[in-house]
Structure formats: structure tokens, C-alpha cells
Simulated assay, not measured.
Amino acid sequence: MNADFPRILTLLRKEKGISQKEAACELGISQALLSHYEKGIRECGLDFLVRTADFYHVSCDYLLGRSPDRAGATLTVDDIPEPDTVAGKENTFKGSILPVLNKKLIANSLNVLFDLLQRVGSKSLTNEISSFLMLGVYRMFRIIYSINPKNQDALFTVPHRLSDNYASAMMQMCSANAQTLASGMPLEGQEPVKNVDNALLTTESITEQYPMCASSLFNLVQNSEIKIGYDKK
């Protein structure tokens, strides 16, 4: 059985707020057997896998860790909504204006960043920078997730005590690789920057090329350097 199955099986039960005894009864097996499944001691059969998927209203692919989506969907570019067009609760901030402001500064700056990545034409550089950013969001999400002790850590495969340091180390590696590629130095198996001239930037050219996003980028740069607190004196 897939190594993710015990973790996800436990996660679903705890998120549903039921005991092993209750879950085992609903699934038609003994509590002892369910305990073995959740601990990864024994492998279940296909019939149990299907019953479990039906009971928790998830796909078999999700149970097996083949898809992070509960419905088992595999995302393509066209499936992912644009950030500014996402409707509903997840795109609405009430109360303080700060989350709205910061979200816009970050989102608009990312628009500039990824357009520039496309222009310089290095898939490897795009992958390294994308991984760095994803790891940063991952680290902050885990901090928010840890606020409530009732949240199940089984959502993640990497233990909480290790996740931040591991992710930080990977971010350092991504940053080092990105800097190496951007400087034109070779990395084995990596694609170098092709169009150096497209990375020639001035405040004027950025403003002209990105009239909707330039101000956000400049404000993000200013806010970040204030946060860094560097004193050139």
C-alpha cells in the first residue's frame, strides 16, 4: 500500500471528529484492524479502499497520496483560476486594509517577476525561483496552521519539528542555484539564461512595460529594504 495511505486515513478520521471505534464500525472492520491500517502495519484490500473513499467523500487517488486534491483532480494551467478572478470567501478580506494592501503588492510584483522570467527564457531559473517562492508560502502556511492545536499535523508528510528548517535549507539551495544561473555560470543539467538583454531594466522601463504593477513592485522593494534595516553609513 502507498506510504501516504496510513497518514491520510488517520487525517480524514480525525478531521471528521470520530474515534477509531466509530470509524471501524462504519467501515465494517474491527478497531484493531483499522489501527493496523492507520499505523501502516498491514495493507488493506481494494474493497476497503473503495469503502473508505465513499465514506469520507474523497477519491482513491487522494487516499493513496497520488493527488493532493480531495476529488483526485490533476491540475493543469487552465484549471488554476487567476488570483484576481477567484470568487467567493477566499478572495475577500474584511476589516483591516493591511491584508488587502499586502496581497496586492505581492501579487502585482509576482506578475512582473514571472513576466521577466519568461522574457529571459530559462526554464531552470524559473523552476528555482518558483520553488523558492512556494517553499516560502509553505513555511508561512504551516505557521498559521499550527496556531490551533486541534489542526491535524497529518495533513503534512514532513513533521512540524523538521519542516521549517528543511524548507529553509531548500530555499537556500534554490536561491544559490538561481543566483548562479542568473550570473551566467553553468550548472550541470540546468538551462542557462538565454536572453540577457531582456533583463536590462530601469525604473522608467519597468513603469512603461508594467503600468499596472510597477508601483506595487517599487513599494515592495522599499518596504522590504526598510524591513532589512540596512544602514549604509
Rank of each mutant, 00 (worst) to 15 (best):
V100H: 01
E188R: 08
T85D: 15
S175A: 14
G88T: 04
L101A: 02
E22A: 15
G184C: 04
N148E: 13
I8M: 07
I97H: 01
P81W: 15
L155G: 02
P99Q: 05
P81M: 14
N2R: 14
L33S: 14
Y166T: 09
F114L: 01
L110R: 03
D231Q: 14
R119L: 05
S35G: 15
L11W: 09
R139T: 11
L11R: 14
G189N: 05
N91D: 06
F141H: 15
F114E: 00
V221F: 13
A73Q: 13
S146N: 08
A71Q: 13
R7V: 10
C174P: 00
R142C: 05
D164P: 01
E15H: 11
M170R: 15
A32Y: 05
G136L: 12
L162Y: 12
V120P: 00
T157L: 12
S131A: 12
L75V: 10
I143G: 02
A214I: 08
I41P: 02
T203V: 03
G40Y: 07
D164C: 05
Y230H: 10
T85Q: 15
A176D: 12
E15D: 14
A178F: 02
S67A: 06
K21T: 08
M171E: 09
Q190G: 00
D69N: 15
K39A: 14
E225R: 15
V221P: 04
L135C: 04
I80Y: 10
Y138C: 06
L187A: 01
Y62F: 11
L217H: 09
G88H: 06
I144R: 06
G121D: 07
E15K: 15
L125W: 02
R161E: 11
C174A: 08
M134H: 07
V50R: 12
S35R: 14
L63C: 02
A154Q: 15
L187H: 00
V58R: 05
L113T: 00
Q172W: 06
S205C: 12
D153T: 11
H160P: 03
A24Q: 08
Q118N: 14
Y56M: 09
V100R: 07
P81T: 11
G72A: 07
N223F: 07
Q118L: 09
A167Q: 11
